[in-house]
């Protein structure tokens, strides 16, 4: 008898003591791991956002442009710097190969960041916090973000989006 030959006729046999212990520990560990996702989701301050709306790429671009016109306070290399009202809606557009616009946020205020794409799929990656979300065209993904520290934070793209993918970056500036 080996793993390469048929087993004996009746192989449905009780487990040994060690097997029972191992199996019990594994199942308990599995349930703890499972419960932790629920507990964390209910109790912790950081959780995966779910708020989503369908939106056309043109409509989202219009919303972003209006947002930029209304709240622009400066520019860096031609990219507008936008200071939205504290606690308001923020539009961040991903497109080949740029995050548009640069955002200036206030520490301790909670913003609703709307993420969407003008063209292909992108990956929102906030550094050095290292928080990552998928950005799809036609979907408005709303992330509630409360900056906890001041400084300059980069956004890079971490979903391959074309030959200029490695150039795609943006910025969030957090002030007191």
């Amino acid at each position: 008898m080996s793993t390469l030959t048929p087993p004996e006729r009746v192989w449905w046999k009780p487990l040994g003591k060690e097997e029972k212990i191992w199996l019990t520990v594994s199942i308990i560990w599995a349930l703890v791991l499972f419960s932790m996702m629920i507990v964390w989701s209910a109790a912790a301050k950081q959780d995966t956002p779910t708020e989503t709306y369908k939106i056309s790429t043109t409509e989202f671009q219009q919303l972003t442009n209006t947002f930029v016109q209304k709240y622009q306070v400066g520019q860096v290399n031609g990219v507008p710097v936008v200071r939205p009202p504290a606690g308001g809606d923020v539009y961040l557009l991903a497109r080949q190969f740029q995050w548009y616009p640069i955002l200036e946020l206030k520490k301790g205020q909670t913003y609703r960041i709307h993420l969407s794409s003008a063209d292909v799929q992108h990956g929102f990656s906030l550094q050095p916090m290292n928080m990552n979300f998928q950005v799809l065209p036609d979907y408005d993904y709303v992330i509630r973000l409360t900056p906890a520290q001041t400084g300059e934070f980069y956004i890079v793209c971490n979903e391959f989006c074309g030959l200029g993918h490695h150039l795609m970056s943006g910025k969030i500036i957090v002030k007191e």
């Binding site: 740029q98 993918h165 970056s169 943006g170």
Partner: peptide, 19 residues
Amino acid sequence: PRRTWDTTYSQSIVPGPVF
């Protein structure tokens, strides 16, 4: 990031030493 040719972002519009 994975799948990224270069992570210095030196040629980007918003250039930076991200990492």
